[in-house]
Design a protein around this nucleic acid. Structure first.
Lengths: 147, 147
DNA sequence: CTATTTGCAAATAATTTGCAGCTGG
DNA sequence: CCAGCTGCAAATTATTTGCAAATAG
């Protein structure tokens, strides 16, 4: 768990004012592991800080994305989710539970990087390449585990 | 270009009534190569068939997706697009032009299938695995080519 | 002090719904 | 004929915007 001073520093070095609202929102998003939607973030925020508005949550997470502090992912159904992890990773999307899960696999990353070294993609400046596994959880009360 | 009789047959064998609206919409989606949005489909539809309503286009493409005649993909920004191709393929998304392009690469498919043979994904019924390349077109007037 | 940021309420955009009337088989 | 489909308009949902008041640095 990161403390507020650290988040404050993170915001400053991104050139953003470290407002109360931003500190609250960032610390909550970092606590929520599973790619929350704006509504879910707002739901958490309002518990302790009911005066922070929904519009502020929208504006704030968008600011974070623009400044590279969060990334933004669409689910298969087009709902936007926010992810505090910025490094290269894949996603697992469970259509039945609507969960969007990170998955890390260096071997897969390497495989894909190697693959595209041998292909030439013309007229495109690649920002990133992601692998997404879509499926349904068999037992919704248990976790998905890759090994 | 597929003819109407063929589409009619396709609808019937999916257990759907071959209505005028469905024939028009399906033939237009099959003509549009680059993953149209509902609005883009509606834009084409109304040229020749101004009496077909937007709501009908929404309902119809959704019916097609439910019956496996089209697939539905969200762009990185969460906009829904419809794709007449159902086989396994990757997507290239150009952030600047908002184009969503199919890309076929058997070698990559095979690589990924092999990779997941050696991984065990527990508690998930996998529906599909897709690779998405996100980037920006360098020259928006030219095509992206992979070779 | 002042450029940014916030909260509110209203605006916009995308999609869904209820229901009466139409139509394919 | 009649279950399923369509068109319309209204409802819902998600997100954005304009602007006056608040505030970080």
């Amino acid at each position: 768990m990161r403390d507020l001073a650290e988040i404050q520093e993170m915001l400053r070095s991104a050139g953003l004012k470290a407002t109360h609202q931003r500190l609250v929102i960032m610390s909550i998003v970092m606590k929520m592991t599973n790619h929350p939607s704006v509504d879910q973030i707002y739901g958490e925020v309002r518990k302790d800080h009911p005066s922070i508005s929904l519009a502020t949550v929208y504006k704030t997470v968008e600011t974070f994305v623009e400044n590279g502090l969060l990334s933004k992912v669409a689910t298969r159904e087009g709902q936007m989710r926010y992810d505090p992890r910025l490094d290269n990773h894949g996603h697992i999307y469970c259509g039945n539970t609507k969960e969007l899960l990170d998955f890390y696999d260096d071997e897969l990353n390497e495989l894909i990087i190697d693959f595209f070294k041998n292909r030439k993609v013309n007229n495109l400046k690649i920002k990133n390449i992601t692998v997404r596994i879509n499926g349904d959880k068999i037992d919704p009360s248990k976790d998905v585990i890759i090994k």
